[in-house]
């Protein structure tokens, strides 16, 4: 479990703390989405999880290991992997296999073991056969999958995705989403920083940050259906959530909170089937 207790952080020269008394716990196998406007402290928070930033005050523990102790950092970085926004700036090797081998090499593993981990990781992310390719020849989505493979070679327990899909096309995003679900099913906890609310809706839990504080923490249905609050923070709610919200305001239809088009279609289908001819007539037969 990741346990953050009373975490504060003030950058050198800054007036206001970037993180103010953060308390948060992330369980194994949990998929947590971290949302919030720019400057809300999301990236600073997740960089603590990988010991890239050491807590100034408060505590961050990864499965009982304190991030405050430098002697724990190597192990913590093995346990918590991190994928960043720009895939090009994460590539270390000149070939796909060399890049994946970088992490295990840092752990001073034997060449045979490194080779095995490279093969396994590439298979997991669906890039088997790409071993000798130059990472610079890969598409944006493939590069992010390569970054994931590089982490998987370290057998992490948690993976932090820091706006990983923001520069990807829908197809590539889909591949990353599928991968996230597969990893979660294998027991890996996912912490996903995102500005995309539809992406956040796929998580088990959503944490909303503003000005260095956690202002909401709950299920996607609880956090993402508060359309007014999201809009005030400059965040765009998922279009389907906004549509349902407006319909409810306009006609007091009492439509339940839905987060995806699939859920909305399912509800509407049941409603149409259950309401008989009257409901259809009400729609003037246009549905």
């Amino acid at each position: 479990m990741i346990k953050i207790t009373n975490l504060c952080h003030l950058f050198k020269g800054a007036q206001d703390p970037t993180l103010k008394d953060i308390n948060l716990q992330v369980r194994e196998r949990e998929h947590l989405a971290l949302i919030g406007p720019n400057g809300s402290g999301k990236t600073t928070l997740v960089r603590h999880l990988n010991a890239l930033i050491t807590p100034q005050s408060g505590e961050v523990e990864i499965d009982g290991l304190s991030c405050r102790k430098a002697s724990h950092h190597a192990q913590i970085r093995r346990m918590v992997g991190m994928v960043f926004q720009n895939p090009d700036n994460q590539i270390v090797g000149m070939t796909v296999e060399e890049d994946i081998a970088f992490g295990p090499g840092n752990l001073n593993m034997k060449a045979d073991e490194i080779r095995q981990r490279v093969t396994d990781s590439l298979q997991m992310v669906g890039l088997a056969g790409f071993e000798k390719r130059s990472p610079f020849e890969l598409s944006g989505g493939e590069k992010q999958l390569l970054a994931l493979a590089g982490l998987l070679a370290l057998n992490p327990r948690y993976i932090v995705l820091d706006e990983t899909t923001s520069s990807l096309d829908p197809g590539a995003k889909g591949r990353v989403y599928d991968m996230v679900k597969t990893l979660q099913a294998q027991g890996i906890g996912i912490i996903q920083v995102t500005h995309n609310m539809e992406e956040a809706a796929r998580a088990d839990r959503v944490v909303l940050m503003k000005g260095g504080l956690i202002i909401a923490d709950g299920s996607p249905a609880e956090v993402l259906t508060d359309v007014d609050r999201l809009k005030k923070l400059g965040l765009a709610p998922p279009p389907i959530v906004e549509l349902i919200s407006r319909l409810n305001v306009m006609g007091k239809h009492g439509i339940p909170a839905v987060l995806s088009v699939d859920q909305a279609a399912d509800w509407l289908n049941r409603k149409l089937a259950g309401s008989g001819p009257d409901f259809n007539n009400g729609m003037n037969g246009r549905i």
């Binding site: 890239l52 970085r77 700036n89 994460q90 270390v92 590089g150 982490l151 370290l154």
Partner: peptide, 10 residues
């Protein structure tokens, strides 16, 4: 950014 990514990978 590369240095940060390298550190994150141990």
């Amino acid at each position: 950014e590369l240095v940060t990514a390298m550190e994150a990978r141990g």
